[in-house]
Design a protein around this nucleic acid. Structure first.
Length: 923
RNA sequence: GGGGGAGUGGCGGAAUUGGCAGACGCGCAUGACUUAGGAUCAUGUGGAGAAAUCCGUGCGGGUUCGAGUCCCGCCUUCCCCA
């Protein structure tokens, strides 16, 4: 008897063997078709968690499949290594971000190797190395030189106490998450990329095989709206421009609203209103944008005392300030048409402003004074001077005759023009942080600025820095970094902002091509062969930001000629570069999220003394069997432990949560755990939710791998979930794949069966193999990994059945094992390699071809014909697979089940579905 | 608030996209083997019913010979928001 399956004795050995042999080294080879498979690179937080395994190992399985299908596959890995956590570790634990990050990367590399992935480590890229951020800076400079980077004002989270800017994730409920100090919204000068210049092109998804939801989210994010810009004039002569998608309602504007940050607010505010307006402005600064945009929030605002003339009817209307208007959207000013816009309506009703109907819906007679809500739909223009009677059909932009006519008239009159507005704003890349790529700009003494010369790149981050507990970037007080000279040799100051880490991840797919290339971000020879990325996998949470940014990068790089060399080389090799550089990733697939498992808390009886509030101070706590739970306890309670914070328990006592404080000298009894028990050993209830350390529901992949082996963990992750959906982790379910792998091990190591061969049995076993080839391949193509593994398990079951009945000779047995192991190789690369070697097939299984599917071998001789009466199954018979439609219908009508339900009636219709071998008799 | 998903046995999930609902696995049950079992093997497993059969894909309508799948209206829940 061969030895039992032991993952520990094989996995480490093959990792080393594969590395020694450079098995996964990917090199340009124009004689083979290429496949660039990319999976989102991790942030080096310290430990690989199960989510990384869930994201990466199925992607790896698919990359392996593509390789066996004959593609030259590039499947690289790296680290997105700049970012806030490293800086926070530096502040709280006094470790330099560099050291912290590198230690984490070292650790994670080891973990990544244990996964059995085919990453080509010679292409690893780490975004926080000077070799990498040299080119991040270079991109900035090129964008700046070409007008794609500029300085502008933006609202930032400003902590007045710390005198520093905070990232969005550092602000919770308008307060600094660490210190609890209030945070306000403040306008500051920041660096931007002109992503809006590409807004229209970014709306074009025609070249992309991307999930529909991602395309919809990006479309909404960009938020293109067509309308008009109209210029209003104040009584004192200032002009205020507004953007509106509904110029057909201009005659219904009864007031104007400016964002609190609008630059004209100060000028138009009357002295009487000044105090109120200023108070309102500072209150608005404390609200976040999400709060301000919330529609169910009570509308607030204040009258400025100023008036503006509506240019379409010369009416004098009041100007208000309200925070539901954003300075960053449109022009920061709106004409308010309360009759036809719900937000304006609520505002008007609250402050008792006029409501005038200008679009009368057909068959209705709306009255501004009494209508209960805004009516935004279609109708006929009224109260609109010369436009009265024009139909407004509810369509947007030029498709609406009313809007179209008004736009033309506005242009004629010179008071407005057709305009397109986007919700998308330019990409704010400034971060007031240390641990990011420096922005290579220099401020001269005269106040002008210039980019750092290309030969002086990269501007390196100084390493001798001290972190202040305020969180202020050390670059702002690091004199040697700050002081430099401009191109003329005059003293100058460096920019201290660093770049958003989304910058680094917008172009990493190019750095992987040639991580050591010193003459540019990537080598054109590599880019010509590998680009673009064929399939990109990662989390759906990146649907808008990261994926829009990287698309913007690709388009900007194309327009700045950065792909020209690659395109020329591509052409030399006879491949057309046409449209290949418009988009960075042709196909995209998102995996879901692995959630924490649900767990029932310990059932507890606690006794002690209650205080007057009903809180129990327990001197005795005992875990019992929930079936034996008493409904009432003298001087105590019994129920499931729902939560525990140190020694304070929350117990579900007959539906009510009771707080129990366990006294320090209390007796704790947990029968399942030997010895003296502690409160900390009690298990509390866990809901299905995201894994996090604080919830205590984290699954540690290292432990799983050491216990069950990487093959089992990989296969289980692929088997247990719909990959694009994810779901709760079930710790028991892994038994199924462990049994499967053990079965395969035992089956192969047992060797070919002795005894005579029987052609019928051999035909069956080969048929099952080929049916599996079809299903496994199909699952991999569709990222439906669970059905692929299920097909492999079905194959296992079928082979076991056939082998038990006997009749399979050695040659066919070897053929079937050979095919099955190759099908397994993407999912369980270690055990497949080991068993492959064990059968004496040539090394390595991962360099073999994918098994070829032969439909003739897979075809069944006989099939089951399903007979339905009015869509309900009434009988089933076995018929030859090549049965004709006439024969199938005749056989169906003759069945006992059909006869019984037809009761002698003549069928109205008989429908035959050949693909399903199904007859439906309609009576 | 806005945007995007998802609801199928006790559980994770299948269903060739309009064609036998529940593949595969977990769990559970019964039996076998064993000094022992959180091992292994066999059989069964959506619900009701003795059976014929009926009911079943979040809820309510609709289209169709036929609906988990398409349409209309709800409910619940998860994710994202510079």
């Amino acid at each position: 008897m061969a030895e039992r399956y032991d993952h520990k004795s094989i996995e480490g050995r093959w990792v080393k063997q594969w590395e020694d042999d450079d098995l996964y080294r990917s090199k340009v080879d124009w004689s083979k078709p290429k496949h660039y498979a990319l999976t989102m690179l991790p942030y080096p937080s310290g430990d690989l968690h199960i989510g990384h395994w869930f994201a990466m190992t199925p992607s790896d399985a698919r990359a392996r499949y593509m390789r066996m299908k004959g593609y030259n596959v590039l499947f690289p890995m790296g680290f997105d290594a700049f970012g806030l956590p490293a800086e926070q570790a530096a502040i709280s634990r006094n470790i330099h971000p560099w050291k912290w990050t590198y230690a984490n990367i070292e650790r994670m590399r080891g973990q990544l190797r244990s996964m059995g992935t085919m990453f080509d480590w010679q292409r690893e890229a780490i975004s926080c190395t000077p070799e990498y951020y040299h080119w991040t800076e270079w991109f900035f400079k090129r964008f700046y030189d070409n007008g794609l980077a500029y300085r502008g004002e933006a609202l930032v989270n400003w902590s007045p106490t710390l005198q520093t800017v905070l990232a969005n994730e550092q602000v919770i409920d308008g307060k600094d998450e660490r210190t609890g100090q209030p945070v306000i919204q403040k306008l500051m000068t920041q660096w931007f990329f002109k992503i809006t210049q590409y807004a229209d092109e970014l709306l074009d998804f025609s070249k992309l095989d991307w999930p529909e939801p991602v395309k919809i989210m990006q479309t909404n994010w960009i938020g293109r709206s067509e309308g008009a810009r109209v210029t209003f004039r104040t009584e004192r002569g200032e002009s205020i421009e507004v953007f509106t998608t509904r110029p057909d309602t201009l005659w219904g504007a009864t007031f104007m609203v400016l964002a609190p940050e609008h630059p004209l607010v100060e000028a138009i505010t009357s002295d009487a209103q000044r105090e109120a307006v200023q108070a309102y402005q500072s209150a608005a600064a404390r609200a976040t944008e999400i709060e301000r945009l919330s529609e169910d929030r009570e509308k607030t605002g204040v009258f400025t005392g100023g008036y503006v003339i509506n240019p379409v009817n010369d009416e004098r209307i009041p100007i208000w300030v309200a925070d539901y208007v954003m300075i960053s959207y449109g022009t920061g000013a709106i004409m308010a048409v309360p009759a036809h816009d719900q937000r304006d309506f609520e505002f008007a009703r609250k402050f008792d402003l006029a409501v005038r109907v200008v679009i009368q819906p057909e068959g209705e007679n709306l009255d501004g004074a009494t209508m209960p809500e805004a009516v935004p739909g279609s109708g006929v223009m009224v109260n609109s001077g010369r436009f009265n009677g024009t139909p407004s059909n509810g369509e947007k932009g030029r498709k609406n005759p009313a809007i179209s006519a008004v736009i033309d008239w506005l242009a004629e009159q010179g008071i407005g023009s057709e305009s397109v507005n986007y919700r998308l704003r330019d990409w704010l890349i400034s971060r007031q942080r240390y641990w990011g790529s420096p922005i290579p700009m220099i401020y001269r003494q005269d106040g002008t600025m210039e980019p750092v010369a290309e030969v002086d790149l990269p501007v390196e981050l100084p390493s001798d820095v001290e972190f202040m507990p305020t969180g202020r970037s050390p670059l702002t007080y690091h004199e040697p970094f700050l002081n430099t000279v401009d191109s003329q040799g005059n003293p100058a100051r460096r920019e201290t902002d660093t770049m958003d880490t989304f910058m680094c991840s917008s172009w990493y797919q190019y750095r992987y091509l040639s991580p050591d290339f010193a003459h540019g971000p990537f080598a054109p020879e590599e880019a010509a062969y590998w680009l673009p990325v064929d399939v990109y996998t990662g989390g759906a949470e990146h649907a808008t930001m990261h994926l829009l940014y990287t698309r913007f990068f690709a388009k900007a790089m194309r327009d700045l000629g950065m792909f020209d060399d690659a395109a020329a080389i591509m052409q030399q090799h006879g491949r057309s570069p046409n449209a290949l550089f418009d988009e960075p990733m042709l196909a995209l697939r998102n995996q879901g999220q692995v959630l924490g498992a649900e767990r029932i808390g310990d059932f507890i009886v606690a006794t002690g003394e209650f205080d007057e509030t009903g809180k129990l101070f327990a001197s005795h706590v005992e875990v019992i069997d929930s079936a034996a739970a008493p409904t009432s306890v003298e001087n105590g309670i019994a129920g499931e432990l729902m939560r525990r914070v140190e020694n304070v328990l929350s117990i579900d006592y007959n539906g009510e949560w009771v707080t129990v404080e366990v006294l320090p000298d209390a007796e704790v009894i947990i029968p399942a755990i030997e010895g003296v028990n502690r409160v900390e050993q009690l298990k509390h209830h866990l809901d299905i939710q995201r894994m996090s350390k604080s919830k205590g529901n984290v699954v540690n992949p290292d432990e799983l791998v050491s216990q069950y082996g990487a093959d089992s963990v990989r296969a289980y992750l692929m088997f247990a979930f719909d990959w694009e959906k994810g779901g709760p982790w079930d710790p028991k379910g892994i038994q199924g794949v462990i049994r499967w792998i053990n079965d395969i091990w035992d089956m192969v190591t047992a060797g070919a069966p002795a005894g005579p061969s029987n052609p019928a049995a051999e035909r069956v076993i080969r048929r099952k193999l080929h049916q599996a080839i079809e299903k496994v391949s199909n699952g991999l193509e569709r990222f439906s990994f669970n059905t692929s593994v299920a097909a492999l398990m079905t194959l296992r079951n079928d082979i076991k059945t056939v082998l038990r009945d006997g009749g399979v000779g050695s040659a066919v047995w070897h053929e079937v094992m050979n095919g099955m192991l190759r099908l397994m190789a993407p999912f369980a690369p270690f055990v497949a390699e080991e068993l492959w070697a064990c059968l004496g097939f040539p090394y390595s299984i991962h360099q073999q071809d994918w098994p070829a599917y032969d439909p003739a071998i897979a075809a069944e001789d006989e099939v089951e014909l399903v007979i339905q009466i009015n869509g309900k199954v009434r009988d089933k018979i076995v018929v030859p697979a090549d049965i004709s439609e006439e024969d199938a219908k005749a056989a169906a009508l003759a069945t006992e089940g059909a006869q019984r339900f037809m009761e002698g009636q003549t069928p109205k219709k008989v429908i035959y579905i050949r693909a399903r071998y199904m007859v439906n008799i309609v009576i």
